[in-house]
Amino acid sequence: MRFRLSFACMALACAVVLGGCGKKEKEDEGAAAPANAPAATPVDSASAGSVSGTVKFEGAAPKPARLKTEADPYCAKMHTSAPLTSEEAVVGAGGALANVVVYVKTGLENRTFETSKNAVELNQEGCEYKPHVIAVQTNQPVTIINSDDTTHNIHPTPANNPDWNKSQGPKAEKITQSFAREEIAIPVKCNIHGWMKSYIAVFKHPYFKVTGKDGTFDLQNLPAGDYTLGAWHEKYGKSEQKVTVGAKEAKKVDFVFKAS
């Protein structure tokens, strides 16, 4: 009797564990690219408008933290003269905030868009991801490069897309991946080099930009309409603004983030 009870408990535990794993597999299957995607809604370039602006940080600019790279002698050697610093908050001249994803959050629901076939590169160079933040369309190829003479592993931890984890040897062949579902933003990490972190934002449409050190963004060829613009930053969170864009109108919208 006791044996039967123990056996039943073990079987139940196995079922729970394997059930959890099985769920993951099903999610993976569900993330495949749609076979019959609807035709893209054309945008009339002659009447399209644009939104541009700057993202700024208000307050004292945070000092980038020095990253410890001694765990891998190769990485440490790469940064003997100039230590690697964190990119979680990069504030440029005049408070310009870099690595902010600015995008159209609402206003495009009735439209569909062709997926860009241009691959976006994510390079592992000097034991850091370059660029630190990228944005792509759903199913747009992301090419991952290892320019280093050390092994990296690329491990995105998405909430809406399937997990994957691939290792890439020194200067190994490029890896190309894509993400089927919209997600802002997917953290990417290297489990070998704990300081290596990056983000990939995925959108159904092509209206997004990642700010550089000047903090500027520019969304061109936007059909006239009412929109909500979103801005996402890995440390300072999200912000949004309403904007109405008329035909051929060039709107200016600025975002300001503060230390939380």
Binding site: A71, Y74, T151, N153, N165, K166, K189, N191, I192, G194
Partner: peptide, 26 residues
Amino acid sequence: NEAGLAVPDWPLSYGSLFPPMVGGIF
């Protein structure tokens, strides 16, 4: 150290008993 997936294969590590013991692999 978030190193659980620093080695993607099992039971060997990068196909070896003694991979380079750097970072999360260590």
